[in-house]
């Protein structure tokens, strides 16, 4: 099932409200403004991006002057030159997604299942999960730079414990970038998993135990599958922004072996004024993510998530 189909009409016979008369066309009034907005500021700009990605420099013109063309070679050139950054982006985003799942799932489980029935505690813990969002994203990332700095506590401790060789550091490494990504997008993982676990009927777990399942088996056969929609949503909410992010890479990385595609796009646009390359890279990133997300949703069988 394609994304489009997945997003389509729910199959008849489900609990959807009965079909309404649309003779009054009330839905057009409701939808109109929002959809027109999305067309003007999403569909058309993406079109502009596609067009720009095929532009060629104006012969004899200044830097940053381009004219419409169908120069497909922009794509092959961009990929040939920047494929390491593209691959690295997906690799880092993947690592950050896995790390946030490992940290986020138990956290969501603790709040949803262990604190079940204690509404106030649950509420306050959830506030703590989203609290980092109340401070600036960039300042938090800079705080990581301070935390992982050469003369700061973490590195000193790791050196002292010989967990990190004396001549190695944490700043400006892939590790720093991935941990920054993980940190910044972790709440996006916790919230949907919490929502899925919270909906889970605790009687199901009791039924599992009643049917002779050990806690581990109950988790594997009941809890985990039922929390799958939350896990899928969470992984998407982390992976997508992480793959396109460049704040972490530029503040916590070193530019040579940590450069992500977002950084390249930003630099092509603003430093080199190479709009066609930046646009082609953006299109490549967008298409790659849509393909990955589509395949992922299809495989995990959670189309109704959307």
């Amino acid at each position: 099932m394609s994304i489009a189909a997945a997003l389509g009409e729910s199959v008849s016979g489900d609990s959807a409200p009965p079909p309404r008369r649309t003779a009054q066309r009330a839905h057009l009034v409701l939808l109109g403004p929002g959809l027109i907005y999305l067309v003007l500021f999403f569909v058309v700009p993406v079109g502009a991006l596609l067009a720009t990605s095929l532009y060629v420099p104006v012969p004899g013109g200044d830097v940053g002057e381009y004219q419409p063309a169908l120069h497909w070679q922009n794509y092959t050139d961009a990929i040939a030159q920047f494929w390491p950054a593209i691959l690295r982006s997906f690799w880092f985003a993947f690592l950050a997604t896995v790390a946030s799942l490992v940290i986020g799932y138990p956290l969501a489980y603790a709040i949803a299942v262990r604190a079940r029935g204690r509404k106030l505690l649950q509420g306050l813990l959830l506030v703590l999960v989203v609290a980092p969002f109340f401070t600036s994203f960039i300042l938090r990332t800079i705080a990581w730079k301070q935390i992982l700095a050469d003369d700061a506590l973490v590195v000193t401790l790791l050196h002292w414990l010989h967990l990190l060789p004396a001549d190695e550091r944490l700043t400006a490494t892939p590790f720093a970038v991935v941990s920054g990504l993980t940190y910044n997008f972790l709440p996006f993982m916790v919230l949907p998993i919490f929502a899925a676990l919270e909906r889970l009927d605790s009687r199901l777990l009791e039924a599992g135990a009643d049917l002779y399942a050990s806690p581990t088996t109950t988790f594997r056969t009941v809890t985990w599958p039922l929390s799958m929609p939350g896990v899928v949503a969470g992984t998407l909410l982390v992976f997508i922004p992480a793959a396109g992010d460049y704040v972490n890479a530029s503040l916590l990385g070193n530019n040579t072996n940590t450069a992500m595609v977002g950084q390249v796009i930003d630099a092509r646009f603003f430093k080199v004024l190479d709009y066609p390359t930046a646009a082609s890279l953006s299109v490549v990133l967008m298409v790659a993510i849509l393909l990955l997300v589509g395949a992922y949703i299809r495989r995990s069988g959670t189309e109704d998530l959307l």
């Binding site: 999403f42 997508i240 990133l285 967008m286 993510i289």
Partner: peptide
Amino acid sequence: STPEVVLGAALLAQ
């Protein structure tokens, strides 16, 4: 499901 950098690039292109 579009990364911010692509949204930004598209709007800027526009």
